[in-house]
């Protein structure tokens, strides 16, 4: 683990710390590539157990990629990930599956199993990984669906649900194993404000009642400030801020302010570069 030099423009600037057992998640020098193109350029952060971490960042900044890497769907090209104190990025499939039983993930698109009813989707992990009685599982499924406001929809097929309902069903499924660590990719994007507020409320309650450690990717600033204990701002695959919610509110760091105040990105390319880009003299981004 080679520590990064501390960056001046980094609020709460930290060099990679030793991994603490009390952290639900620790990420060290994480680099992720799709093919030749590097998306995350050495990311470091910690999520203390029982806290909610919000990852902010513009579209395409690598938030989903970061989340996918944290749950083991993308392999980092280098760096380490610790989930509940255990190395997660470089372990065997069996060990990883064991850890994953304590993790819940709600995908940006929902990713419900289209061939199963909503209830079957939520029940599946319980049926596969536990010895619970089917009647207990039925009650648990109804409890989870009630928590996301989908009581009575257990026999619907995902295709019969609206976009927002799909997303909530996916959250119910992510909750089904009562995970210690929960990941949300844009949980309230595209939902109406009342439902979105309900989801924020649910995240707060889950943290309190079940002591879950939660990582949420979102663009919704109001929601972020409501639910987060800590926030990081990701910009083009680099963390430009890592701070508590209050520190973040008062940050004077330009890139953070720009994101928080919703200032459009200033033009970074010069006229010559722009001309070259239009005429194809600068090669496009390689896949």
């Amino acid at each position: 683990m080679s520590p990064l030099p501390p960056k001046k423009d980094y609020i709460g600037a930290m060099t990679p710390m030793p991994v603490k057992a009390s952290c639900a998640i620790s990420v060290r020098n994480l680099r992720v590539k799709y093919g030749e193109r590097e998306i995350l350029h050495g990311v470091n952060f910690d999520v203390p157990a029982g806290e909610t971490m919000v990852i902010l960042g513009g579209s395409g900044s690598g938030k989903s990629t970061l989340l996918r890497t944290l749950v083991g769907l993308e392999r980092p090209s280098s760096g380490e990930i610790y989930i509940m104190g255990k190395e997660f990025a470089n372990i065997s499939e069996d060990e990883r599956d064991e850890l994953r039983k304590g993790i819940g993930m709600s995908f940006q698109s929902g990713a419900l199993f289209g061939s199963m009813t909503v209830g079957e989707n939520v029940a599946l992990p319980l049926q596969e990984h536990t010895d619970l009685d089917p009647s207990t599982i039925e009650i648990m499924v109804r409890l989870k669906l009630d928590q996301v406001g989908l009581s009575g929809f257990e026999n619907y097929m995902p295709a019969q649900l609206s976009g927002g309902m799909k997303k909530r069903a996916a959250i119910a499924r992510a909750l089904s194993m009562d995970p210690q660590v929960l990941f949300f990719d844009e949980p309230s994007a595209g939902l109406d404000p009342i439902i979105a507020a309900g989801i924020d409320e649910l995240i707060l309650k889950l943290k309190r009642a079940f002591k879950m450690s939660i990582v949420v990717v979102t663009h919704e600033l109001a929601s972020a400030f409501l639910i987060a204990d800590r926030m990081i701002v990701l910009d083009k695959g680099v963390i430009v801020a890592d701070a508590t919610t209050d520190e973040m509110k008062n940050s004077t760091q330009p890139r953070v302010r720009q994101f928080l105040d919703r200032v459009p990105e200033p033009e970074v390319t010069g006229e010559i570069d722009y001309l070259q880009m239009l005429t194809g003299d600068i090669p496009p981004i390689r896949q």
């Binding site: 990883r96 599956d97 995908f107 992990p125 194993m177």
Partner: peptide, 9 residues
């Protein structure tokens, strides 16, 4: 992907 994150092979 969802299946994998649920530890289903």
């Amino acid at each position: 992907d969802a299946m994998e994150t649920m530890a289903l092979e």
